Amino acid sequence: MSKSTALTLDMINLLVLQAKHGDDRAFNMLYTHFFIPMKRFAFVRVNDTMLAEDLVQNVWLKISKRIKTLDDITLFRSWLFKALKWEISDWVKSSKNKILANSAHEDASDSQVADQALDMGQLMPILAGLPASEADVVELHYLNGLSVQETALALDVPEGTVKSRLSRARETLRTSIYEESNYEL
């Protein structure tokens, strides 16, 4: 899958409205736009490209059946990521697997390694260095462009919690960057 298409919020809202009324083309455009960000979100949590893709596919199957029930089309992005978060949570519960940050048994030449980069090679260590709750808000807000309100809805936390986690994450990153720059001098 290539890069996601650049859609404005208004375009997304229009496509959601059209998809609610059964427009398959609109639904496919939404899928194309959100696939890579959703795959990245899932991958960071499960550390397996194929599993991340399967989880995203499962969410889109559910969304295709439930989109008609979405009352407020402006909540689509947060609804989408919240559905993905639930799908990941359900997988963790049903598989009873530990999600590992690094998979030592994977071969470095495996094509999966190339997929894992997802243009985030430099961001993965930074996100991994943050507490999970802060990494979640940073990824949704900064990397996926969700507003504070949408991020709060996706994570099922108050907006104030999102703001404080973003603030703590920024401070952690600032400190980390400052320490690295002083160490190199």
Rank of each mutant, 00 (worst) to 15 (best):
K39E: 14
D10Y: 05
M29F: 06
M120K: 04
S109W: 07
W91Q: 03
D107W: 12
M1K: 04
A117T: 09
T172W: 03
S147A: 11
S2M: 05
D71C: 06
D24P: 01
P37S: 07
N97T: 11
W60K: 01
H33L: 02
V113Y: 10
V162Q: 11
R168Q: 13
T32A: 08
K65N: 06
G129W: 02
W91G: 04
L185P: 03
H33A: 15
D48G: 06
Y178I: 06
L70G: 14
I88L: 06
D119P: 02
L61Q: 12
Y142E: 14
A52I: 03
L30W: 07
L61F: 06
A132M: 14
K96E: 15
L15H: 08
A19E: 01
V92C: 05
D71R: 13
K39T: 15
E134C: 12
E179M: 14
D107T: 11
L123E: 12
M29W: 04
V16Q: 00
L143P: 02
I73K: 07
M50D: 13
F41A: 06
R40V: 13
L80H: 08
F27C: 01
L185H: 12
D72I: 06
A117L: 12
L185S: 14
D90G: 10
A6M: 05
E184W: 07
F76A: 07
E184L: 14
N182K: 08
K96S: 11
I88F: 06
A83N: 13
R77A: 09
I126L: 15
D136T: 12
N102C: 03
N58E: 05
T161F: 01
